[in-house]
Design a protein around this nucleic acid. Sequence first.
DNA 1: TTGGGTGCAAACTCTTTGCAGCGTT
DNA 2: AACGCTGCAAAGAGTTTGCACCCAA
Lengths: 139, 139
Amino acid sequence: METATVDLATTLRQQGYRVTQPRRAVWDALVRASGHMTVEQLSRQVEEPVDQASIYRTLKLFEELGLARMSHLGEGEASRWEPAHPDEHFHLVCRSCGTVDHHIGTLVRDIRNHLDDGHGFDVEDVELVVTGRCDDCRA
Amino acid sequence: METATVDLATTLRQQGYRVTQPRRAVWDALVRASGHMTVEQLSRQVEEPVDQASIYRTLKLFEELGLARMSHLGEGEASRWEPAHPDEHFHLVCRSCGTVDHHIGTLVRDIRNHLDDGHGFDVEDVELVVTGRCDDCRA
DNA sequence: TTGGGTGCAAACTCTTTGCAGCGTT
DNA sequence: AACGCTGCAAAGAGTTTGCACCCAA
């Protein structure tokens, strides 16, 4: 967590952005929660209050800097944010309890490879969301 | 197209819903366009004017009846609708020209199988959206 | 005839934007 | 001191909802 904070400050400064209290607070909340946070949830968990508009701006910046990643996990749902991690993964959303699990595997890379091989499509992003019922919620 | 219309009326009646002009018009527009339509696009292409609120209600009904399918194809974009087809497929969205292609293959089924085999997750829906640049848009 | 469906308008949610003032550099 | 960033409030998009009227059954 300390490491994460340092990384944030370093990355911001390297790219010529200011290291501000709101940015630190949003980043800390994001890291502390380890992912899948809506802007609203973040705004509630942030140490010092930060305006939601600023949270949106901050997260968008983090995304550009490669620090955070957004996903849509379902219909009519707000976007969810998590610290960017290096592994390609996808999300398993339980429609019963709402839990979101990461599933790390070769699947996303397989998709990339499959499309790179002569399908003439230059893949930039793979968004894979699987909805269903998790182990705990099945009968 | 005539077949499609007949299917619509039959399905509606079988489930106790009324066969109305707006429902026919929305369905025709959806079939005619063969997919990937936003509500706004549909409202422009429908023969007789249909209120957007009614289009939303109609599409939601079609979805429940298994006649149509919705996808989110990108950030901040409106939902897109297409007639439900039996093949499992996913979408290739070109961020340059905006074209959306279907890609039919075993990938989606592979994902289902992968998760069904002892991962304890009961898969209901797989939403896979690949963003990148299509053949035509690459240099 | 009757109640399901529609149009219209208002409300709601999520997100973005304009602007004046604050705080990092 | 300078100007990038923030908070606040308002505006925007997409979608939903309440309600009176209409029309398919």
